[in-house]
Design a protein around this nucleic acid. Structure first.
Length: 381
DNA sequence: AAAACGGGGTA
DNA sequence: TACCCAGTTTT
């Protein structure tokens, strides 16, 4: 078949149609997020703060929006500028990051802030320069370039992979399909509002084009979607099957001083839960159920078995038998006592909070300021 | 190219 | 439960 001389250019038309429809949808249906400048404010001339964009993007790496919101607010209130974050003790940053996971992000966050602050406090606005900063990979460099600086970067995250593979019925399994997806997105990025386009694609993926049971009837791109026309969008993207998770087991030891302080130690800076705090544990090996005991306790004491906790990491499951004992004041080398009021604020990953909770229920919960009971009497300022 | 790296939201 | 999320770094 021959094409007319003035053939329709599918690339140009797709760019106009799809991006235009998507942006119109986004103008009305965008999510309100603490780090986002909504389209009507951008139209008024409000400029995004690259520091906030960067902080949100780091937090959002492999982390859901819902989980990030509270952490983002706390970080911004405590460290409103990149200079403030750069000046913060690393320990404070790790404590504030506790519970968010992927703790190398927190170390890289601090390192990146120091580099940017030392370079004058301005984030670079090009992908190669952004890519050179610690913790910023291909996705985040493109996202910051697009969202903070409105550059026509090719932003591809998990949402956009899903939207794109459905739009074009891409059967190539991920991650093999990544180059193809990049090429498609590159053709879709509009010259105007590329930052909003990236965010609109992600909002679409998060609210309409969801992994399961996508709401295709509400989709602004339903007329463009190959998967919807030809079959079932939920079948995309195709992924390689994941290897099953092995199980590791061990024991955790919660030593309690008379005043309620708990014995902690700090993990090495690199590796699993790097730089975070923990209660003493045995090694986590593939030993059999029930094989752990108190033989590997940090010191001899009357260790009481308090139960077992389970935790799931990316690449293995973990079961810890939890033991508790009273203790004198002496802390073994490399260990320290954390007072009851300090426990909640320690750099404890979730698995360690679980272990402590198993031994001392409530110990890791924040002690709220006791509510005044007699509010019927007004106090003077 | 593959593995390491957390935790939680969602159906 | 099982899946997967605004991925990056290391091996």
């Amino acid at each position: 078949m021959t094409l007319p001389v003035k053939a329709r250019n599918p690339d140009q038309d797709d760019r106009y149609d799809i991006a235009g429809r998507l942006l119109s949808w986004y103008d009305v249906n965008h999510r309100d997020l603490p780090w986002r400048v909504p389209p009507h404010e951008l139209a008024r001339g409000v400029q995004p703060d690259p520091y906030r964009v960067w902080l949100s993007e780091i937090m959002l790496q492999q982390t859901t929006v819902e989980a990030v919101k509270a952490y983002f607010r706390i970080f911004i209130e405590r460290w409103p500028t990149v200079e403030a974050l750069a000046a913060a003790p690393s320990d404070d940053v790790m404590k504030a990051w506790a519970g968010l996971g992927y703790y190398s992000r927190a170390r890289n966050l601090k390192a990146c802030a120091q580099i940017v602050a030392r370079a004058g406090g301005q984030f670079p606005d090009t992908e190669p320069e952004l890519r050179a900063l610690p913790g910023i990979g291909p996705y985040t460099a493109a996202a910051i370039a697009a969202i903070a600086f409105n550059r026509p970067a090719v932003v591809v995250d998990g949402n956009i992979e899903r939207v794109t593979t459905r739009l074009y019925s891409l059967a190539t399994p991920l991650p093999q399909a990544k180059p193809e997806i990049r090429e498609i997105v590159e053709r879709l990025v509009p010259g105007e509002r590329p930052g909003d386009f990236a965010q609109a694609m992600m909002d679409l993926g998060a609210t309409i084009c969801t992994p399961k049971r996508p709401r295709c009837m509400l989709c602004p791109l339903r007329e463009d979607c190959s998967a919807l026309a030809n079959g079932d969008p939920a079948l995309y993207p195709v992924r390689k099957p994941k290897p099953e998770r092995p199980m590791r087991r061990g024991a955790a030891f919660v030593a309690v001083r008379d005043d309620g302080a708990i014995l902690l130690r700090k993990r090495t800076e690199s590796g699993l839960l790097g730089g975070m705090s923990e209660v003493p544990t045995t090694g986590w090996t593939a030993r059999k159920d029930g094989e752990t005991g108190t033989v590997a306790a940090p010191f001899a004491a009357d260790w009481q078995h308090m139960g077992r906790i389970s935790h799931v990491f990316t690449h293995f499951g973990l079961e810890l038998e939890v033991y508790r004992a009273g203790s004198g004041d002496e802390a073994p080398h490399g260990h320290f006592w954390s007072a009851p009021d300090d426990i909640a604020g320690e750099a404890l990953p979730t698995v360690m909070k679980k272990a402590i909770e198993a031994a001392i229920p409530g110990a890791t919960k924040k002690k709220g300021v006791p509510k005044k009971r007699h509010l019927h009497t007004m106090e003077k300022p």
